[in-house]
């Protein structure tokens, strides 16, 4: 019995010392008890896949691909969610006046409070790290070596047509990278609406404020 207990204890100690405790850091992938069910032969996004060109499962779109969400009729107008669609010429997706290379002057979608709120949220996600909460180019990245970040209150940018801002967000300019992959066209217009509001916050005069709010400003 003594030997049995001794061996039992030794075994227990051996198991704990080899297997360790819950939550301890491990570099090895988790053990899967039934790997054939856990990992099925199907395509999952962003996983390596030897079958496909380049070994990647998330293949780039073939030129001219029309997404399934494309080209819905909304209030008698065709609406698509990607620029690479039959509507690729509409100003909503190009920022240009249809059929020309001229940038549209104003936002071609209805500017609502909802769009503005969306713009504020999206601005905070994608723009604020560099351009700063006020749009003055003093984002946190400035401290880390982003030397030249444009202030959005620059006259050049205030005077820029909305279509050109759309173009800059999508494709970048100078040292700024393009955000076309990250920000959908609809969200780009939302951000532009919010940027215009930011600019107005510095350019506006007290008389621009509706009369009932002027008193609150102390004027």
């Amino acid at each position: 019995m003594r030997y049995f207990l001794l061996i039992f204890l030794l075994l227990a100690v051996a198991v704990v010392s080899i297997a360790g405790f819950r939550g301890s850091i491990s570099r090895k992938p988790p053990i899967e008890v039934f790997p054939d069910m856990d990992r099925q032969q199907k395509l999952r996004p962003q996983e390596p896949n030897a079958f496909l060109p380049g070994g990647i499962s998330s293949q780039p779109f073939v030129t001219g691909t029309v997404p399934r969400s494309a080209a819905r009729l909304v209030k008698g107008e065709l609406v698509a969610s990607y620029s690479d669609s039959p509507l690729r010429d509409s100003p909503t997706f190009t920022g240009r006046v249809a059929g020309t290379t001229n940038m549209v002057d104003t936002i071609p979608v209805p500017v609502t409070e909802k769009l503005m709120a969306r713009g504020r949220e999206r601005y905070a996600i994608s723009c604020l790290p560099c351009h700063g909460a006020q749009g003055d180019g003093n984002g946190i990245t400035k401290k880390l070596g982003m030397a030249v970040v444009a202030t959005l209150h620059d006259k050049r940018i205030v005077m820029m047509p909305d279509g050109e801002l759309f173009h800059v967000i999508a494709n970048g300019r100078n040292l700024m990278g393009g955000y076309g992959q990250n920000i959908t066209p609809q969200d780009r217009w939302a951000i532009i609406a919010y940027v215009r509001a930011l600019q107005l916050s510095k350019l506006g005069r007290a008389t621009d404020v509706p009369a009932e709010f002027q008193r609150a400003l102390g004027k």
Partner: peptide
């Protein structure tokens, strides 16, 4: 900023290197 598909998709994407380069072209 990086996992930009998480609100639209079942899958939360890992960003492409382009997203890193938005800052790391300078930093």
């Amino acid at each position: 900023y990086c996992h930009n598909g998480v609100e639209k998709s079942w899958y939360s994407n890992v960003p492409s290197a382009n997203t890193c380069m938005n800052c790391h072209n300078q930093v």
